[in-house]
Design a protein around this nucleic acid. Structure first.
Length: 214
DNA sequence: TTCCAGGCAATAC
DNA sequence: GTATTGCATGGA
């Protein structure tokens, strides 16, 4: 059922090229997707992805992208710069992403952490203030290419709609179920989560394209 | 105007 | 362990 869902979504939407990375355009930085690119990330790319994972918490990517681009424009999208930045200038730069005081602190906590732990484990990430299950898994999967499945609100909603899991099913249960069923590499987990987000964004309110799976 | 977006921590039971 | 609340902007 889960594998079938993955194949249906991939067939429907094609490769998503997550995680989007900033690229300089005519009017400032915009994020871009790179379908089919599953190569190793540079240190700078990894940090950008992790910062994006924090900035997009409970916030649309459109807003997180603005905040990320502002950090890039100001030249403070690195652990060193974020550590040395004043709290006010940091929160000011990321204003568009909302929760800017909390997220400024989260960025600082993560920046300090990542300098001491270049290749963090899931448990280490979860010990950092501001990093929960989804953010930790997003960082591991999209920045560090660790084969792990990311669960989010879209996943819980879609799985509930399809009767795969109960609406109130917890994070870990869903994550372990998918990983047990799929036994996949980082590429498939990468695509699967991205496809779920893409699909659920496009289909709100719930659309009929997945009817054959119900 | 209201609702909600790629969550998390603190607090209260 | 589960439920509730604060955090905050900006697009639809």
């Amino acid at each position: 059922m889960i594998k079938q869902l993955y194949m249906e979504l991939l067939d429907l939407h094609g490769p998503q090229g997550w995680w989007p990375l900033l690229r300089k355009g005519r009017d400032g930085y915009r994020s871009e997707y790179f379908p089919g690119d599953f190569g190793k990330r540079s240190e700078r790319e990894r940090f950008e992805i992790c910062a994006g994972a924090i900035l997009t918490q409970n916030t649309s990517w459109m807003q997180a992208e603005k905040a990320l681009a502002a950090l890039k424009e100001k030249g403070i999208l690195s652990p060193e710069k974020i550590i040395s930045a004043r709290a006010g200038s940091l929160s000011g730069a990321i204003r568009a992403a909302g929760y800017f005081n909390q997220k400024a602190r989260k960025l600082k906590e993560f920046a300090r952490f990542v300098q001491a732990a270049p290749m963090p484990t899931r448990e280490q990430l979860l010990s950092v203030w501001g990093i929960g299950n989804e953010t930790a898994d997003s960082m591991l999967l999209y920045a560090y290419r660790v084969p792990t499945f990311v669960v989010d609100k879209y996943t819980q909603r879609l799985f509930a709609e399809l009767g795969i899991t109960a609406p109130e099913e917890g994070y870990s249960r869903i994550k372990l179920l998918v990983e047990k069923e799929m036994q996949a590499d980082h590429k498939a987990y990468n695509e699967f989560h991205a496809l779920i987000v893409r699909h659920q964004k496009q289909c709100r309110p719930p659309c009929q394209v997945m009817a054959k799976l119900k």
